[in-house]
Nucleic acid binder design. Structure first.
Length: 289
DNA sequence: CTAGGATCCTGTCAGC
DNA sequence: TGCTGACAGGATCCTA
């Protein structure tokens, strides 16, 4: 998915088009994607009052005391097609420029001046309707760790010590430890910090943990800063996949290419069940400081 | 309690 | 061409 920077890009982009707008029609094409589907008509004639983000979850507050929590998981996308513009973000694919709805479209929210499509190839993502007062009690949101900017390096170090036997990459992917990092930004942050993803979290020094946190913030800030315009460019382009990531990433998806720091070959390995990109020269397993 | 693997689902790609 | 297995920007459930 869509990690924190992409969800933030969705939030900012959608806000321009749907804030204070009324939902005039709702179509659920895949029941699994809207929970609970029997209540979907509660959205009818309701107005969007706020868009919030909790880690990788987007929350849309309505004016009737209800909220929509949207999680894009691996392949979710939110695509706006309106009279006054288009916007697409989430998992990049040809859907960004395709005719919609299509067979990956799960939910359609219609407004007076446009349509919002929730597309999701693998159906892991979902839209969940709940009272606004219940959002912060939602199991996922309740367990969520602090945002990278809301915790200091000592706090992250403490959390690494608590999961001392786990691999550092697994710890960074754990949303209860720190909110928002996914497979791309975990690899990017570890590469930038010069830390091998298979190091045990408890083996990192305070200084190494501080470096990881600093780099995680830096790569995510950079992605958010470039996200909006890059996505807009992407939509207008030919739909060829991957421009955004290819331009942004230093290490992710770059296996076989040369490390930007030392020039040696970037490798792809499996860590914590996920494809993981490293420079074996710059990220050594035994390295301590 | 933690750590690690299987699982949900659709689609694409490499290799035979 | 058709088949097979691996893999995918995530999180949860189950087991040890």
């Amino acid at each position: 998915m869509p990690e924190l920077p992409e969800v933030e890009t969705v939030r900012r982009g959608l806000k321009k088009y749907i804030l204070n707008k009324k939902i005039v029609r709702i179509t659920v094409l895949e029941n699994k994607s809207f929970q609970p589907v029997v209540k979907c008509q509660k959205l009818l004639d309701k107005t969007i009052r706020n868009l919030r983000r909790f880690g990788k979850a987007l929350v849309i507050d309505l004016d009737n005391g209800y909220s929509l929590m949207i999680h894009l998981r691996m392949t979710g996308q939110l695509i706006w097609r309106g009279d006054k513009g288009e916007f697409a973000a989430g998992h990049p694919s040809e859907n960004f420029v395709a005719e919609l709805p299509n067979k990956q479209t799960r939910v359609i929210f219609e407004f007076e001046d446009g349509k919002l499509f929730f597309n999701d190839q693998r159906k892991f993502g979902f839209v969940k309707l709940m009272p606004t007062t219940e959002v912060e009690n939602d199991a996922f949101i309740k367990k969520l760790g602090p945002e990278p900017w809301d915790m200091d390096e000592k706090e992250l170090y403490r959390r690494c010590q608590r999961h001392s036997k786990a691999l550092i990459k697994a710890v960074l992917l754990n949303q209860e430890v720190i909110a928002g990092l996914g497979n791309i930004y975990a690899d990017e942050a570890l590469f930038a910090a010069g830390i091998h993803p298979e190091r045990r979290a408890g083996s990192l020094s305070e200084r190494e943990v501080a470096k990881v946190l600093t780099e995680a913030r830096r790569v995510m800030e950079a992605a958010i800063d470039s996200g909006g315009s890059t996505m807009a460019t992407y939509v207008k382009a030919d739909g060829a996949r991957g421009n955004y990531l290819d331009n942004f990433a230093q290490i992710f998806g770059k296996q076989g290419q040369r490390c930007p720091k030392c020039g040696k070959e970037i490798k792809k390995i499996k860590v914590a069940g996920r494809g993981t990109h490293i420079c074996p020269h710059c990220q050594k397993k035994g390295k301590h400081d």
